[in-house]
Structures are given as structure tokens and as C-alpha cells.
């Protein structure tokens, strides 16, 4: 490669770098704007031109978590998410392990079926859940929403865990069988300790999915079990005067997710291709 070409390539790289910086900044404007709004007093929030430099205040961040029921909603969100993870991940892991160990010609159709199920419109599932929930008097209870979230989460968990189990060599199962393990013992003693990182990733993704879920939470919860997304959606709606407050709430909801995302970074693509986080 000639020196001239190398210089040309370096210039392109720099252009791309600067372009990406610009794009990233513009792309993050809504987020930055929300964070700024959450730190503003109303007199700074409603100005033309928009205020960039102001005296930040944490007043609304404190207010939203103390004077409103947000702590209660957070608890609801956590209970429901944790419940979903504790049912979905163990059950999904067992099935995924078995799927990764049976012949591919049997596993293939099951995996395709699960993938298809994942594509079902959630609305079609929300209606019967709502009707049955009404009959059984279970609307606005934890178990109903947890079961609904397990339903949409299970195919995803199985897909994700299946990928992790495939990476654990089958030789280990065979060695364990020869060493005297039943299938259950081989799973518990040999495979499970090796699958723990994968299960952590699956658990975090499931947690994220449940924490972010909106449709089922909207139609299946009421005053007793309302989750954070439902609360912020109704809260941050129309009333302009509470912008700073709702921005503080929204930013607060976002923070743990950013944390989880930083942990999951390495596995993001995997989670995404096993099934989108949202939906």
C-alpha cells in the first residue's frame, strides 16, 4: 500500500470518527434534553430559546421518589420482574439444555415453533388474559401479570440459553454418563456450574424485558400492582407544569437499565438475535 493511500485512508477514518461523534450527539439529544429538563426549575424549562446553562436542582428527583407513589411502583416492578425471572429462567434453562442435547432433527422444529410463537402479536394474548383475568378476579394481582410475562419471555429465554448450552461440549455429558451420572446429575453437577454465566445473562435480559414491558402491565394492573412504565406513561402525559417532575421520574427509571446494559454489553448482540429485548 502506498504512503499516499495510507494518508487517504487515515483521513477517511478521521472523517468517519467526526461524523459518528456528531451523529451520536444528535441522536442522544432527546436523552440529554430529558436529563436537563429533570434538573430544571419550571422557569428554566419553558423558555425560548431553550436554556442550556442554568442552576441545576435535584429537587424533582427527590420529590418524585418521595412525594409520589413511585417507590411503590418500583416495588411492584421489582416484584413482578423478579417473579418472572424466577419462573422463566429455571424452566427455560431446563428445556434449553434438553434441546441442546437431543438430535438436531428433533430440536430444529421445536426451536422454529418457539421462534414463531415469539412473533405472535402480543395483543392477541393480552385479550384472553384480560378476559380470563376478569373471570377469575385476578386483574390487578401479581400472579396474573407474572404469568403473562413468563408467556412472552419463555421462548426468548429458551433460545438464548440454548445458544449457551450448545457451547458446552457434549463430551462432558458423555463423560459424566460414563462416570455414573443420570441425566439430572450430569446437568446439576457438571453442566449447570458451567452454564451459570449464561444463566446470569438470560436472567438479566428477562429482568429487562419484564421491567420495560408496557402492554400487559397496562391492561392487567390497577392501583395495587401498577408498574413504573404504566405509572410514568399516565404521569408524564399532558400536564406541562409537571414536566420537570416526570422527566425526573423517567430518568430515574432509565438509570438501572443503563447499569444492566453496561454489565450485559458483551452479550447484547446475542440477546438481540435470540429475540429482541422489546416487543
Amino acid at each position: 500500500m502506498s504512503a499516499q493511500m495510507r494518508v487517504g485512508q487515515q483521513r477517511t477514518t478521521w472523517l468517519i470518527f467526526i461524523g459518528l461523534c456528531l451523529f451520536t450527539f444528535i441522536n442522544l439529544t432527546p436523552l440529554i434534553w430529558a436529563v436537563l429538563t429533570s434538573l430544571k426549575d419550571p422557569r428554566d424549562a419553558f423558555t425560548i430559546p431553550p436554556t442550556i446553562i442554568f442552576e441545576p436542582t435535584l429537587k424533582y428527583h427527590i420529590q418524585v421518589w418521595t412525594e409520589n407513589d413511585f417507590v411503590f411502583y418500583l416495588m411492584n416492578s421489582l416484584i413482578i420482574s423478579a417473579g418472572t425471572v424466577f419462573i422463566s429462567v429455571p424452566a427455560g434453562s431446563l428445556a434449553a439444555y434438553a434441546l441442546s442435547r437431543i438430535p438436531r432433527r428433533s430440536a430444529g422444529p421445536i426451536l422454529s415453533a418457539l421462534f414463531t410463537i415469539r412473533m405472535f402479536p402480543h395483543m392477541l394474548l393480552a385479550i384472553p388474559f384480560f378476559v380470563m383475568g376478569t373471570f377469575l378476579n385476578m386483574i390487578d394481582t401479581y400472579p396474573l401479570l407474572i404469568l403473562a410475562l413468563v408467556a412472552i419471555n419463555q421462548p426468548f429465554t429458551i433460545w438464548l440459553m440454548h445458544g449457551f448450552f450448545l457451547e458446552i461440549p457434549r463430551d462432558l455429558d458423555e463423560a459424566a454418563a460414563i462416570d455414573g451420572c443420570s441425566n439430572w446429575q450430569a446437568f446439576r453437577i457438571v453442566i449447570l456450574p458451567l452454564a451459570r454465566p449464561g444463566m446470569t445473562v438470560a436472567a438479566l435480559f428477562s429482568l429487562l424485558l419484564s421491567y420495560n414491558e408496557f402492554l400487559f402491565a397496562l391492561v392487567l394492573t390497577g392501583t395495587d400492582t401498577k408498574t413504573l412504565p404504566v405509572a410514568i406513561a399516565s404521569f408524564g402525559g399532558e400536564d406541562i407544569s409537571s414536566w420537570s417532575l416526570s422527566a425526573a421520574g423517567a430518568v430515574g427509571i432509565m438509570l438501572p437499565i443503563v447499569l444492566v446494559m453496561l454489565i450485559l454489553q458483551r452479550h447484547l448482540v446475542r440477546g438481540l438475535t435470540a429475540g429482541a429485548v422489546k416487543g
Binding site: L31, L208, S246, A250
Partner: peptide, 19 residues
Amino acid sequence: LFLPHIVTPVVAALFLKWM
């Protein structure tokens, strides 16, 4: 660049609404 995707969709929608 990934942040907008990982944020709770409802929250992302609110961010955009405020824009």
C-alpha cells in the same frame, strides 16, 4: 448509540414527546 434501544420504550417515547 445503543442507549435509545435499551431504555424502557415508554420512557423513550416520553423523551421524544418532550422533543
